[in-house]
Computed example of a mutant assay.
Amino acid sequence: MNLATLALFLPACFALNTAPGPNSLLSISNATRYGYRTSCMAGVGRLLAFAMMIALASAGLAVVLQTSELIFYGIKIVGAAYLFYLAYQLWRAAPQAETESKNAPIGLCALARQEFFVAAGNPKAILIFTAFLPQFVDQTADIGSQLTLLGLLFLVLECKRLPKSPCVS
Rank of each mutant, 00 (worst) to 15 (best):
L147E: 12
S39E: 00
Q135Y: 03
L3K: 06
C40G: 08
P166G: 01
K76H: 02
I77V: 14
A55R: 11
A42R: 00
S29C: 08
G107E: 09
R37S: 15
V118I: 07
S39G: 06
D142L: 09
G144T: 12
K76N: 11
L48I: 15
R37F: 06
A42E: 01
T148R: 13
L152Y: 05
P22Y: 05
C109T: 13
E69I: 14
S24A: 05
G151A: 03
A141M: 08
P105I: 11
S58M: 04
L16S: 15
R92G: 04
G79M: 08
P163S: 01
A12P: 01
L65D: 08
A94R: 10
L149H: 09
G107Y: 09
A49N: 05
S169R: 15
Y88L: 13
Q66T: 11
T148N: 09
I128C: 11
Q139R: 14
F129R: 13
C167R: 04
A59D: 07
S169M: 13
G107S: 15
P11S: 07
A57L: 03
T5R: 08
V118W: 01
L70E: 12
L157A: 06
T130K: 04
I128F: 14
P95V: 10
Y73T: 15
A120M: 15
L153R: 08
P163C: 01
N2H: 07
I106R: 12
N30T: 12
S27I: 10
L153E: 06
N2V: 02
A7Y: 11
N30R: 07
P163V: 03
N122H: 06
G151E: 01
G60P: 06
A87I: 11
A15P: 00
F84L: 15
Q89P: 00
G144M: 11
L86K: 00
N30W: 07
V44D: 00
A51W: 05
A31I: 06
I28G: 12
G60E: 03
N2A: 04
E100Y: 13
A131I: 04
P134Q: 07
S145L: 14
G74E: 04
A62R: 10
A42F: 08
I28F: 14
A55M: 14
L111F: 10
R37Y: 09
T148Q: 10
F84R: 02
E98H: 12
V156N: 05
L65K: 12
E69G: 15
I54K: 10
